[in-house]
Amino acid sequence: MKTVLMNFAYGLVPQELPVPKYQPLPEQIEQARQEWLNAQNYYNNVSDVDLIDYAAYMIKAAEKKYTYLLKRARREGIHYSPFS
């Protein structure tokens, strides 16, 4: 009985876990920069008072992500410029 349960459970577990594919760091940085600019634009154009806090949080979160990725790139010796 134990062998049957183990075989059943073993069949449910994938043999190889998929490896997540990430964009190269410069592409992640550019995407984060665009998210930050979009959040700023959203804040500048929001008209509903209830959404102002939400827009401010979006800006702060996008800014943190962007600066994190820039610091990571510096640590890894990757040079990034949005103008290149």
Rank of each mutant, 00 (worst) to 15 (best):
N41T: 09
I29H: 02
P14Q: 11
I29M: 02
A55Q: 04
Y68Q: 13
M58R: 12
Q40T: 03
G11R: 10
R72A: 06
Q23R: 15
V46S: 05
I59N: 01
S81C: 10
N38W: 06
P18C: 04
G77H: 08
V4A: 02
Y66V: 05
N7K: 15
P18K: 09
Q40W: 03
Y54I: 08
K64S: 15
Y68M: 14
M6N: 04
L17S: 07
P14E: 10
A32S: 13
E76A: 11
L37Q: 01
S81R: 15
L69V: 05
I59L: 07
E35Y: 01
F83S: 11
L69A: 01
Y68G: 05
L37C: 05
Q15E: 06
E63Q: 15
F8L: 14
E27N: 09
Q40Y: 05
V49M: 14
L69G: 06
L25C: 05
T3L: 12
Q15D: 07
K71S: 03
Y66N: 04
I59K: 01
I78W: 05
K64P: 09
F8G: 03
E16M: 12
N44Y: 08
Q28G: 07
K64W: 10
E16F: 13
S81L: 10
V13C: 12
A39E: 03
Y57N: 14
M1A: 14
L69I: 10
W36Y: 12
A32V: 05
F8A: 12
Q15N: 03
N7T: 04
S84W: 15
L51R: 15
Y80D: 06
D48C: 06
Y22V: 12
V49R: 14
V19D: 07
